Computed example of a mutant assay.
Amino acid sequence: MTGQNGLSSSVVETVAGFTAGIASTISLHPLDLVKIRLQVDRSHSSRLGSSLRIIRQIARHEGGLAAFYRGLGPNLVGNSTGWGLYFLCYGSLKDIVGRYRARDGDGAQGPLTSSDYFLTSGTAATTGIITSALTNPIWVIKTRMLSTGSQVPGAYTSLSSGVKQIYATEGVKGFYRGLVPALFGVSHGALQFMAYERLKILRSDSMRLDDPVERGLSDSVQAKPSLARLGNIDFFVLSGLSKVFAGCVTYPYQVVRSRLQTYEAHLLYRGTTDAMRQIWVKEGFAGFYKGLGPNLFRVLPSTWVTFLVYENMKLFLS
Rank of each mutant, 00 (worst) to 15 (best):
Met1Lys: 14
Gln4Pro: 01
Asn5Val: 06
Val12Met: 10
Val15Ala: 14
Gly21Arg: 07
Ala23Met: 14
Ala23Ile: 11
Thr25Ala: 14
Ile26Glu: 03
Leu28Ser: 11
Leu28Thr: 15
His29Met: 06
Lys35Cys: 02
Arg37His: 02
Gln39Tyr: 00
Asp41Arg: 04
Ser45Ala: 13
Ser46Gly: 09
Ser51Asp: 02
Asn75Cys: 10
Trp83Gln: 13
Trp83Val: 08
Leu85Ser: 09
Tyr90Trp: 08
Gly91Val: 14
Gly91Asn: 11
Ile96Gln: 12
Arg99Ala: 15
Tyr100Lys: 14
Asp106Lys: 12
Pro111Ser: 13
Leu112Asp: 07
Thr113Tyr: 01
Ser115Glu: 04
Phe118Val: 10
Leu119Gly: 06
Thr120Val: 15
Thr123Phe: 08
Ala124Pro: 00
Trp139Glu: 10
Ile141Asp: 04
Ile141Asn: 04
Met145Pro: 00
Leu146Lys: 11
Ser147Lys: 05
Ser147Val: 01
Val152Ala: 13
Gly154His: 04
Gly154Ile: 09
Thr157Ile: 06
Thr157Arg: 14
Gln165Asn: 12
Gly171Tyr: 04
Gly171Val: 09
Ala182Lys: 11
Ala182Leu: 06
Leu183Asn: 06
Phe184Ala: 07
Val186Ser: 05
Ala190Arg: 10
Leu191Phe: 06
Tyr196Leu: 15
Leu199Gly: 04
Met207Arg: 14
Pro212Cys: 07
Val221Met: 10
Lys224Ala: 15
Arg229His: 03
Leu230Val: 11
Gly231Asp: 15
Phe235Gly: 07
Phe236Trp: 08
Phe236Cys: 10
Phe245Arg: 06
Val249Phe: 05
Leu260Ile: 03
Tyr263Asp: 08
Gly271Val: 11
Ala275Pro: 01
Met276Ile: 15
Arg277Phe: 02
Ile279Asp: 01
Lys282Trp: 00
Glu283Cys: 01
Glu283Gly: 13
Gly293Pro: 00
Pro294Thr: 13
Pro294Phe: 03
Arg298Phe: 02
Leu308Met: 08
Val309Glu: 05
Asn312Trp: 00
